[in-house]
C-alpha cells in the first residue's frame, strides 16, 4: 500500500447531502435521498430470484399436470393410508431382521465411504493437494458420481455382482464417497492457511501437516457431516431394497405387492421411528459433547 493512502481527505461539505453525485451506478435515483444499499452488489440476488421464477413457470408448463384427475383420485389415496394404518404383526420378526440388514448396509457404507472420503477429500482440497489439477479432476468426479442417482448405481452393481446386501453397500458407496469427498475437501479448505503455514515452517512434511493441523481443525465438521450422512444413508438403504438390494425396503415392497398393507404400514412406521431416534440421538450428542 502506498503511504499516501493514510491521508484522510474528506469530500467537500456541499457534496454530502445530495445523493446523485455520490452514486456512480445510477444516474436518476427513483427516490430522493441517500441510497443505503448498493444495487450493483445486490444484482446476483435479483438475478437468482428472476431465474427461479422463470424456471418455476417453465417447469409447470412442461409437467402438464392433470389437476382434475389428481383431485378425483385423492379419496383413493386416503383409503390406502387407512389400510396401511391397520397394522398387522404378521411375519414381524422378518421385518425387524431386514431392518437390521438395512442399518448394517447404511453403517458399512458410511465407514468405508468415510475412509475413502478422507483420503480423496485431502487430495481434492485446494490448499493441501499435492497437485492442483488433481483437485479439479477429483471434484468433477465427485460431482459426476452424485449426479447419477443411487438406484442407478445399485442397478449397475446388481448387474455385475448379483442380488444381495453386498451390492447394496457397493451401490450406496458411490454416493457416500462422492458426498464425503466433496464435503471433506471443503472442510479442509476452510482451515486457515496460517495454521497450515505455521506447522509447515517447523519443517513438517505434507502428511504430518495434514494429521497435525488440518485434521484436528476439521474434526467437529467431519463428525457433524458424518452424522448427517448416516441419516441419509439409512433412508437410501431402505429405498435400495426396492430395487433388489435386500433389507427392509424389499420387505415393504413384497408386502405391498401382495396387498398386505397392514404389514407394510408397520414396517414403514418402524423405519420412521428408527430414523427419528437416530436424529434425536445425534442432536442430543452434538449438544452435550463439545468437540
Amino acid at each position: 500500500m502506498n503511504p499516501e493512502d493514510y491521508t484522510i481527505v474528506l469530500p467537500p461539505a456541499d457534496v454530502l447531502p445530495s445523493a446523485g453525485t455520490l452514486s456512480p451506478y445510477r444516474q436518476r435515483p427513483r427516490r430522493p435521498g441517500i441510497r443505503v444499499g448498493d444495487a450493483k452488489r445486490d444484482m446476483p440476488v435479483y438475478l437468482f430470484l428472476a431465474a427461479l421464477a422463470v424456471l418455476t413457470v417453465v417447469s409447470l408448463g412442461l409437467l402438464d399436470l392433470d389437476l382434475a384427475k389428481l383431485i378425483e383420485r385423492l379419496p383413493k389415496l386416503g383409503k390406502v393410508f387407512l389400510d396401511m394404518s391397520r397394522f398387522s404383526t404378521e411375519r414381524f420378526s422378518l421385518t425387524l431382521l431386514t431392518l437390521l440388514e438395512t442399518i448394517a448396509v447404511a453403517v458399512l457404507a458410511l465407514i468405508y465411504g468415510m475412509l475413502a472420503g478422507l483420503v480423496l477429500g485431502a487430495l481434492a482440497a485446494r490448499n493441501i493437494t499435492p497437485w492442483k489439477p488433481l483437485s479439479f479432476i477429483l471434484k468433477s468426479l465427485f460431482a459426476f458420481i452424485r449426479a447419477v442417482p443411487t438406484p442407478v448405481w445399485v442397478l449397475l452393481v446388481l448387474a455385475s455382482m448379483g442380488f444381495g446386501m453386498a451390492a447394496g453397500i457397493m451401490g450406496l458407496l458411490f454416493h457416500v464417497v462422492g458426498f464425503f469427498g466433496r464435503v471433506f475437501a471443503q472442510i479442509f479448505e476452510e482451515v486457515p492457511s496460517q495454521t497450515i503455514e505455521a506447522v509447515r515452517t517447523g519443517g513438517a512434511s505434507r502428511v504430518q501437516v495434514f494429521f497435525g493441523a488440518v485434521l484436528p481443525s476439521s474434526l467437529s465438521g467431519i463428525i457433524a457431516w458424518t452424522a448427517l450422512r448416516f441419516e441419509t444413508n439409512y433412508v437410501e438403504a431402505a429405498i435400495l431394497g426396492m430395487v433388489g438390494a435386500g433389507g427392509v425396503g424389499y420387505t415393504i415392497l413384497a408386502a405391498m405387492n401382495s396387498y398386505k398393507l397392514g404389514r407394510a404400514g408397520l414396517a414403514v412406521l418402524i423405519v420412521f421411528v428408527f430414523a427419528l431416534a437416530v436424529e434425536l440421538l445425534t442432536t442430543y450428542v452434538k449438544r452435550k459433547v463439545k468437540i
Binding site: 486457515p192 496460517q194 495454521t195 503455514e197 505455521a198 506447522v199 497435525g212 493441523a213 484436528p216 481443525s217 474434526l219 467437529s220 468437540i291
Partner: peptide, 8 residues
C-alpha cells in the same frame, strides 16, 4: 495471529 491449532 499465533496460528495455533485452536482445538489442540
Amino acid at each position: 495471529h499465533h496460528n495455533l491449532v485452536a482445538r489442540l
